[in-house]
Design a protein around this nucleic acid. Sequence first.
DNA 1: GTCTATAGTTGGATAGAC
DNA 2: GTCTATCCAACTATAGAC
Lengths: 211, 211
Amino acid sequence: MSVNDVRVAIDAGGQSTKGARTRLRILDAAARVLREKGYAATRLSDIAEVAGLQTGSLAFHFRSKNELIDEVLRHGMTAGLAGVRRSVDRLGPDATPAVRIEAAVHAHLDGLAARNDYAPAVLRLVDQLPADTRRRFRPTERAYIGYWRDLLTAAREAGELPADLDTALLTRLLLGAMNANLGRADAGPRGRLSTAILFMIGLRGNGASQE
Amino acid sequence: MSVNDVRVAIDAGGQSTKGARTRLRILDAAARVLREKGYAATRLSDIAEVAGLQTGSLAFHFRSKNELIDEVLRHGMTAGLAGVRRSVDRLGPDATPAVRIEAAVHAHLDGLAARNDYAPAVLRLVDQLPADTRRRFRPTERAYIGYWRDLLTAAREAGELPADLDTALLTRLLLGAMNANLGRADAGPRGRLSTAILFMIGLRGNGASQE
DNA sequence: GTCTATAGTTGGATAGAC
DNA sequence: GTCTATCCAACTATAGAC
């Protein structure tokens, strides 16, 4: 259920050679350090230490620091969208748009929870990336945003949200509100946070505490 | 009205010696570069270039890179709170809490507008700062958040927001939603964005477009 | 595959002329 | 006050032993 669970599926091949396992250990270490320190403040030596290797040894698995960070980003974004999509799909085809959104909100907040590293790392890194890296990941970012906008649009078309709603705008506000809880997704009862979020976007049919 | 207007008031003394003016030019240049590139990617040489000086000359005005950045942060945060507070105070003592919040939202979004540099720079930098710098600015950050929470609490006590509202939580979500518009505060009609924001926090008495 | 050791860069700090 | 020139620390990348 956690974002990290898809890790193996993403790793090319999925063999468990020693090299492949070390590679994953390095990626996990990188995600953790990047999440804690941010892009520039992360030294290869920090990552190596967490992974239990010497700094120079990283080069055997990743050509450069940027290549390693790229991999963390790619992994985090792909896993994030996959996690949300999985939660929504699990509901089956008969679920109403509002229920789908609720599931998506839960999944997104879960991805931001303290125990995960990849999604928080991605979120922290986006605004710190060199321009070219940032550009390379724009499409993936847009795909994520687009998925949410489609959820909202479907709700609007089902009459669960106002007909004149600007779904692009509300998507941005919604993601902004959710991401403001980075590192706190576990603080306080889960239900309260997601209830507040759903309330904010106008879905207050489920007994929202504010109405 | 813009955040930058308080600059002179903040500069110690307010004299207009040549040195003081150059100092301000450097600060403005720093805010602009920091806003565009972020913390670590900003080189002193970039700032110097924008300010029209040689890199070495910066040292005469600021002891170190960190001191310069500190000043930009201090300036940005102080001016940001001052701008919001001013907009609210201008309403006079008879304004209802809801109207005050509306004014605050306008002021906050205005601070994030494309033409300003300090507030966007601050916003981009907070998550990139070295731990000690970050710690030093926590109190100022809390003061800003606290001001907003007080606004929401007053509205709750006036019966304009639900009595069981968690104002701390909603403050976080509100700021998150607003800040997600960094660099876009001018995109589209101002009214639409702030209307959506006010709607989200449950203030929809003013003819919000979604109701 | 992983280690140690080193080469190469980058960029902030500093000194001293003008 | 501002410039040029230099120093120095930090960190990535690379080479070669084991």
